[in-house]
C-alpha cells in the first residue's frame, strides 16, 4: 500500500495554520495544517471548478474565495451553497521530513 503514497512537500513548508497546493500526477491537491493536523483535499472547488486554495480555513472547514462555498476538510462534504457536491479527500502521512499524499 505504502508505494501509493507520493511525496508532496517538506513538512517545514506547511507549519500549523498554513496550507500548500501542488499538482500531483495531474491532480491539484491542497494540504492544510490545521493546528498540527495535516488534511488533504482537492484544490479545486466542486462548484464551477474554481481554485479553492486561497480560501480561508477555520474550524477545519475551508471556504472558497470565489463564491463562498464551504467544505469540511475531513470529509470533503459541501456545507454551504452554492456548492452541493463534495470535494475529494486524500490520505496524508509524514515520513521523515516529508509530507506524502495518496491519490
Amino acid at each position: 500500500m505504502s508505494e501509493e503514497f507520493v511525496r508532496f512537500c517538506e513538512t517545514s513548508e506547511i507549519p500549523s495554520g498554513a496550507k500548500k497546493h501542488a499538482k500531483i500526477n495531474g491532480t491539484w491537491v491542497l494540504v492544510c495544517n490545521v493546528k498540527g493536523r495535516l488534511l488533504a483535499v482537492s484544490a479545486i472547488c466542486s462548484h464551477q471548478e474554481k481554485p479553492l486554495f486561497t480560501g480561508r480555513v477555520r474550524n477545519c472547514k475551508i471556504s472558497c474565495p470565489v463564491h463562498g462555498a464551504r467544505f469540511d476538510l475531513e470529509t470533503g462534504e459541501a456545507l454551504d451553497l452554492p456548492a452541493t457536491k463534495p470535494i475529494a479527500t486524500y490520505a496524508v502521512r509524514v515520513v521523515g521530513d516529508w509530507v506524502e499524499v495518496k491519490l
Binding site: 474565495p65 470565489v66 452554492p82
Partner: peptide, 11 residues
Amino acid sequence: LRAPGTDGCAN
C-alpha cells in the same frame, strides 16, 4: 452574491 447565513473570505 453569497448564500444566506454563511461566512468566509474574499478578494
